[in-house]
Structure formats: structure tokens, C-alpha cells
Design a protein around this nucleic acid. Sequence first.
DNA 1: CGTTCAGTTGACTAAGGTCAATTCCCGTGG
DNA 2: CCACGGGAATTGACCTTAGTCAACTGAACG
Lengths: 192, 192
Amino acid sequence: MLMIPSVREKLLNRLQISVERLEELLRVCFIVTHEKNEQIETNNRVFDRLGYIINGAVRTYYVNEKGEEISYLLQVNDDVIGDYASYITGEKSQVKIETLLKTEVLYFDRKSMEQLIQKDVFWLGFAKQISDLAFLSAKKRLDELFFYTPEQRYLNLLKKSPEILNKIPQKHISSYLGITPQSLSRIRKRII
Amino acid sequence: MLMIPSVREKLLNRLQISVERLEELLRVCFIVTHEKNEQIETNNRVFDRLGYIINGAVRTYYVNEKGEEISYLLQVNDDVIGDYASYITGEKSQVKIETLLKTEVLYFDRKSMEQLIQKDVFWLGFAKQISDLAFLSAKKRLDELFFYTPEQRYLNLLKKSPEILNKIPQKHISSYLGITPQSLSRIRKRII
DNA sequence: CGTTCAGTTGACTAAGGTCAATTCCCGTGG
DNA sequence: CCACGGGAATTGACCTTAGTCAACTGAACG
């Protein structure tokens, strides 16, 4: 698979597998380059693939009954995209995913993963690791919401992922923080 | 292992494994009966076991820098207890767990699970399933916090787990909802 | 009976929501 | 190059809800 070496490095580091195993995995992966503002997943269908953002930015969002869009996740380089709940349960996903920039994504399908597992039980351990990572990132987001106020959440984001604030329109950030654009604007004014 | 048949039924249903596999698992499990208001896990140590509540009620909580207790989870019959993040990462847990009633818990240690996996790869798939369940329950709690106001969260709890409201003091429930006892008292007054 | 602690209530504050108006930014077309 | 249009962001006025601090009530228990 055509891929610049630094991406392989990052994947090795993120997935904690050997070079040989990574090559084996990449053989069943595929890269898609999405344009800016492209809808890459629509709701009401089963999400049977997971993606790794090589570079770019996307948002994962819901549309509520009033037609308002609620950004559940904002993802940038090295983040994983998809709906892991739908991936494992086979139930339809309610989220949509769209790019906020031109974005390159490395995908793999659940079917491919299952075939790998058939061939070598190593990949079952790998699948468990993926699941553990999904759990840890859900817990991280949960803790953020449970323990911090919107203002503190904004400050945490500012500290941890300043690149998100540059790349992504404020209206999506406010939604991700669980507040209105007006409130975010006032928070920003307040903390100067 | 001594256990009333209905508990076996529940476990079969919850874990989705065969009777034989369940027996194999139970051989490495152990049951502990905790008294009411017993500290069953203390913080600052690695949680290397998971428990299944046969009957009773416990709370999983943090103590913040002001010495205030914050109930992260309230668990009753059929719920799983422990700190799955600590269990998989081997990092020290910050949570404490205490019983709110006399509580019977079925435990298994990580070491036992690893031994099972050594013997038969079936248990690796089982471990992945446990991980998936942990993810799904974290996501459920996350969604609850993200999409609903405290008042709506209280109404959801009232609807979904009325038994929790009977068993557990209000101060723990308010904390679990992310609000003060006073606010919960006012919410209750408001929704009559 | 008191003591104690959970729960409620009151008065006030602070933070976020809502609705509307205004300003800013940026791209497009004259 | 400038003027305009449209969406994003900000601001203002006002409302609602949760937090805080303090007082009070009530039930459990010795």
C-alpha cells in the first residue's frame, strides 16, 4: 500500500504491533481521500468500517428532532472515526460523519477483520485491543463531561488540542462542548 | 460453585455463552458477601478483578480535592463493578467502591482470565466481548450526560431504574446525576 | 428526649439558554 | 477594485436552572 513512511510510524506506535503484522493489516485496508465538507457517512445504516485519519479533520454528529446538528465528536489527525457501537452490535447508526477539511482516511471493513481473525488468532487479540481503546476514549469523553463545567472543558480543549480550535468552526466546537455558540463566545470573552 | 439456579440463568443470558463454558468460568470465580456500607475497593491501587452483583447495591465514587464524594456509578443487581480502565491498563484506580446494602458479588481475577485464555482461545473472544460490553455501557452513560439536562436525566432514571431510587439515598443519586442534593430536591418538587 | 444526618426550603448568585440585533469575515459578481 | 450577500460570530436583554450558604424539618437511633 502506498503510504508515506511517517504514517506507518504513527500506526506502529498507535497500534503496538510489529512491522510484519502492520503490513498484513494494511493489505486489507484502503485509503480514501475525501474533499472538504464531504458527507462520508450517513445515518440510519450499519457502520461496518472503522477509519484512521491520516490527515484532515471530520466531525461526527447527530441531527435531533428539531433538525439541529449536534457535534458528538471532533476528530483530527491520528483519530479513529466510525461508530464503534454500530460496528460491534450491527445496529443502525444514528450519527453522520462529514469532513471539515480535505481528509485522507485509512479504512478497514469488519469483514476483513473477521477474515484476518479466521486466519490467525493474533487478530482476535488485536480486535480486543481496538475494543479496549474504544472503551478508553469513550471513558475519557465521559469523564470530561461529568467532572468539568463547559468553561473548564473549553480550557481543557484549548490546552490539549489547540489545533482543533484553529481548524474547526466555533459553532461545531460549542456543540461538541455541549453549549450554544453564544455561550462559547461569552466564555471566550470571559477568559481573556 | 454453590449458586442458586436463577443466577446461572441470568449469567447465561447476560454473557451469551454455553452452559459448559459458564461452568468452566465459574470454576475460577468466587463469591463474596459484603455487609452494608462496606468499603469493598479503595483507591490508589490497581483493580485487577471484575465483579458481578448477584444481589445488593453499590456505588463507585471519587473523592475530589475538597474531600467531596462524587458518585460516578450506582450499581444494582446484574450490574458489573470494578474499574475496567484500571483492569486493562494496569494503572492505579482513583475510584472507591462501597456497598449501599448487603451485597453478594461474583468476582473473577484478571490472572484467572489470562489463564483461561492460555488454555483455550475461546476465552479471548469472551474477553473481547467483555470489553465491548464495557464500551457500550460507558457510551450509554456518556450519551445520557451529553444529550440530557439533569432534570431529564432524573426522569430517565425514574423510568428505567425505579428500583435504584428506592434502594439508594438521594444524596448519592444527585451526585450520580451531576448535581447537588438541593437541586435534586427542587427537581423532584418541580415535576410533581 | 437529644443527637445526628438526610432532605427540604429560602434568598441570593452565577452560568448557560433564548431571541433578536449587529458586526465581522469572506467570497463572488459587477 | 469595490459593493454586496450570506453565514459565522458577537453582543444585548431577559429568562431559567443549577450552585451556594444558611436555616429548618424530620426521621432514626441511642
